[in-house]
């Protein structure tokens, strides 16, 4: 049974940041509808969290399939699970992405999965003040349930809707600074910064696994600041 688990992701021994982290392992992923058979060196668990309707599923679909889910609102029930393998400087990193339902009643279910998440993408909707105000509560939950060294990235989604925007970029930046987490604005509709968010996570994992003690620590927030595009004019 332990072997079964390994095929689909982390065994308990290969958790990110564990002192005797396993060497990169090449594995043959089970063929499934979600993704074709691909090889990978590292696997990383990423969770998308945030209020209902902020665009978690849309962000994921944009990243995974390069498409935008327009039209009706498909609310996620419980937790969805998808894989994508990305290439970070020649290293194949499999991102296991858990897309969660934002509704309050699913919180107890999703909490259980914070624990072994390597990265949490915390989303709010720049056109919805309540979703931004709830970010503090989300961060509180993360502190309570997630691992110490979890990578947290705050994402202000729907940045393309300039007309309806109520949360300024500065507000997001300020909040991110206060909690010292990485921050950027994204748009699942235009694709802005979507890949960057996931790639930063993959890169962080790779650095954690391969970093020599003498090298400086990889900082997601700095990396993101370097790479991110700012929205604004592109509407």
């Amino acid at each position: 049974m332990g072997k079964d688990r390994m095929q689909n992701g982390y065994g308990s021994g290969s958790e990110p940041g564990s002192p005797n982290g396993h060497h990169p392992f090449r594995e043959h992923k089970q063929a499934s509808r979600q993704s074709s058979t691909e090889l990978f060196d590292l696997a990383s668990k990423v969770m998308l969290i945030g209020d209902s309707g902020v665009g978690k599923t849309c962000l994921l679909v944009r990243f995974k399939d390069g498409a935008f889910l327009s039209g009706s609102f498909i609310s996620t029930v419980g937790i969805d699970f998808r894989n994508k393998v990305v290439d970070v400087d020649g290293t194949k990193v499999k991102l296991q992405i858990w897309d969660t339902a934002g509704q309050e009643r699913f919180r107890s279910v999703t909490h259980a999965y914070y624990r072994d998440a390597h990265a949490l993408l915390l989303l709010y909707d720049v056109t919805n003040k309540a979703s931004f105000d709830n970010i503090r509560a989300w961060l509180g939950e993360i502190n309570e349930y997630a691992q110490e060294d979890v990578v947290i990235m705050l994402l202000g989604n729907k940045s393309d809707s300039t007309a309806d925007r109520v949360i300024r970029t500065e507000d997001g930046e300020k909040l991110a600074k206060e909690y010292s987490v990485a921050f950027m604005e994204t748009s699942a509709k235009t694709g802005m910064n979507v890949d960057l968010a996931f790639m930063a996570v993959a890169r962080d994992l790779k650095m954690k696994k391969t970093r020599k003690p003498t090298e400086p620590k990889f900082n997601v927030a700095d990396y993101v600041n370097q790479e991110k595009k700012t929205g604004g004019c592109c509407s």
């Binding site: 599923t57 498909i74 996620t76 029930v77 419980g78 937790i79 969805d80 897309d99 279910v109």
Partner: peptide
């Protein structure tokens, strides 16, 4: 009814209470 009313199961494997 759960299956009939949800579109989201069509996209990925789901885990729900």
């Amino acid at each position: 009814n759960l299956v009939n009313a949800s579109e989201s199961f069509k996209a990925a494997e789901s885990w729900t209470p």
